[in-house]
Amino acid sequence: MSARHIILCINVGSSSCKFALYSVSGGAESIVAEGVADRIGSSGGKIRVRDANGRSIAESDRDLARPQVAVDALFDEFERLKLPRLDVVGHRIVHGGAHHVAPEIVTPALIADLKRLIAFAPLHMPGGIEGVEAVAARHPKLPQVACFDTAFHRGMPERAERFPLPRELWDAGVRRYGFHGISYEYIMQALGADVPTRLIIAHLGNGASMAAVENGRPLDTTMGFTPAGGFMMGTRPGDLDPGVILYLLEQKGYDAAQLSRLVNLKSGLLGVSGLSSDVKTLLDARGSNANAAMAVEMFCYQIKKAIGALAAALGGLDMLVFTGGIGEHAAAVRAEACQGLAHLGLAIDPRRNDSNQDTISAADSRCRVRVIPTNENLMVARHAARLVFPAG
């Protein structure tokens, strides 16, 4: 009989710490509890914990000054609720750089290396690293596993990874890393034997990207050096003409902090609409708000362009998968993004699409279009179980 292992998955962001607690036995996983420590670094911090059925079992107001405090507060709640003793903690780490190409057991050397990567993702890496260190401080003997959002893309050919910049910058690590890799890994596992020769996965959420996969291997992706690149997102602009940045620096007096706020927090759907970064809000408002309508139109147009570009890299398209919060739930975005792609053999069935069915392509569509919910926490749990308990 296989042993049961309890695995905590932590995803520390700039203002929240999401978690999921899994029981894993014999390759089967079941959720024990999940939730979030929210509003880290702001007033009104709150911890919410739900059981396996989604029912609230804890909700408390806490001062969550920084990620370490949030992780400690979560462990306090776990103990108060008498949740099972942990066997391993898995972490989603946004950036693994050029050399971390697979999940790894956390060591002091790995932490030191991740700290050297902070400059590559200054908004994301400090919280992730602090989460790892907070667990180690609380439970120093508890194994931890780091899963890198960039690792999936490390098999891309150099022509896709390189920017057209001098060689010394490539050697210094300035390259297209890609992100959402843990989500893409999960979708690949969910597809199983159904992985086609030419596949595009569209992870559409507040952060959004796509990956082109050829014969099960990553070929290209839309995000680049940072998660701000690619196509338009909730609060990020996607790719910009470098001249725009130079203009803002030289003519408008922007400094690095102002540029960071612009490209990470003030652009994208929010910047264009002036209303919200939430797609549902914008879809509801676009009938009476021209700016909301333009934001949605631009978003769908840029998704369509990205599909076309990646299909060109693949030499055609056999399957398109939508995932992420928007990809899974916004039927209107899926429909509008796929309009005009008949030349790729792609046709959407409106009834299937509106009801969020698994397959939303029409019966005569040469390209299958599917909607598959992602589960990054579960992917992290699987990696952690495989590394720490390889015999099951």
Results as ranks from 00 to 15, higher is better:
Gly127Asn: 07
Asn53Ser: 14
Arg62Trp: 12
Leu123Gln: 02
Asn53Val: 07
Gly54Ala: 00
Thr107Cys: 06
Pro108Arg: 06
Asp51Phe: 03
Pro140Phe: 12
Gly131Pro: 06
Pro140Asp: 06
Ala70Thr: 08
Asp113Cys: 00
Glu130Leu: 13
Lys46Ile: 10
Leu123Thr: 03
Ile118Phe: 07
Ile40Lys: 01
Leu117Asn: 05
Leu74Ala: 09
Thr107Lys: 06
Ala121Asp: 02
Phe120Asn: 14
Ala136Gly: 12
Pro84Ala: 08
Ala65Leu: 06
Ala137Pro: 00
Ala102His: 11
Gly90Asp: 11
Lys46Cys: 14
Leu86Val: 07
Val135Ala: 09
Leu114Trp: 00
Lys141Asp: 15
Asp113Val: 07
Ile93Asp: 01
Glu34Ala: 15
Lys82Cys: 12
Ile129Pro: 01
Val71Arg: 11
Val89Thr: 00
Met125Glu: 08
Gly131Trp: 10
Arg138Met: 06
Gly44Ser: 11
Met125Leu: 12
Gly45Pro: 06
Glu130Val: 11
Val89Cys: 05
Ala102Arg: 13
Leu86Tyr: 04
Pro108Ser: 02
Lys82His: 14
Lys115Cys: 00
Ala112Cys: 00
Asp61Pro: 07
Ala119Phe: 06
Val135Gln: 10
Asp51Ala: 00
Leu81Ile: 06
Gly35Trp: 01
Ile40Met: 02
Leu81Ser: 01
Gly128Asp: 07
Arg55Pro: 02
Gly128Asn: 10
Arg85Thr: 13
His139Tyr: 13
Val132Thr: 11
Pro126Tyr: 11
Glu34Ser: 15
Gly45Trp: 03
Val88Gly: 04
Arg66Gln: 15
Pro122His: 08
Gly44Pro: 08
His100Ala: 13
Val94Ile: 09
Ile40Arg: 04
Glu79Lys: 13
Ile93Phe: 09
Glu59Lys: 04
Glu77Met: 12
Phe120Leu: 15
Ala137Asp: 03
Arg66His: 15
Val36Leu: 11
Arg116Gln: 15
Lys82Ala: 15
Val135Met: 09
Lys115Gln: 13
His124Pro: 07
Pro84Asp: 09
Val94Lys: 05
Arg55Asn: 14
Leu110Asp: 06
